[in-house]
């Protein structure tokens, strides 16, 4: 299955946004110095990616996409398991975005594209989910 969702706006706070299981609550993430160095933190079936700036950003979610990202500032890849169909993405006290990602194992890659490099003229986080 190949799918790309349209970009959705998210207000970033505390330099992070979390990908977590549908119908659950984002867990407390322990942002150790090591996690900050790696650019992500993980807990309870969820992943929080570091965001460069606290501002309005776009989340572009893609499943098994073959499109490449040419201009980006940072790229982080982590394994992720979807326990039931569907995931959410939110930052701290932001609105909640939903994606109907099917149950299964994935490699999640988060590409950080700063506003000056983005066609959307705002910080953009492209998240590629690749089935494994």
């Amino acid at each position: 299955m190949i799918k790309s969702w349209k970009p959705q706006e998210l207000s970033i706070s505390y330099h992070q946004f979390t990908v977590f299981q549908k119908d659950s609550t984002p867990p407390v993430m322990d942002w150790t110095d090591e996690a900050i160095e790696k650019g992500y933190a993980a807990a309870d079936g969820a992943i929080s990616f570091e965001a460069q700036r606290n501002t309005k950003a776009f989340i572009l979610f893609r499943l098994n996409s073959s499109e490449t990202v040419n201009s980006y500032e940072k790229k982080v890849t982590v394994p992720f398991h979807v326990t039931e169909n569907g995931i959410h993405i939110e930052s701290i006290m932001s609105k909640r975005l939903s994606f109907d990602l099917p149950k299964g194992d994935y490699q999640l890659t988060c590409w950080t594209v700063p506003a000056e490099m983005s066609d959307l003229h705002a910080d953009t986080y492209i998240i590629d989910a690749v089935s494994v």
């Binding site: 505390y14 992070q16 867990p27 407390v28 942002w31 150790t32 110095d33 929080s48």
Partner: peptide, 13 residues
Amino acid sequence: PADNRGAGSWVGH
């Protein structure tokens, strides 16, 4: 950052 982002996550949770 470690203190502040952890705190943010705690509050958000």
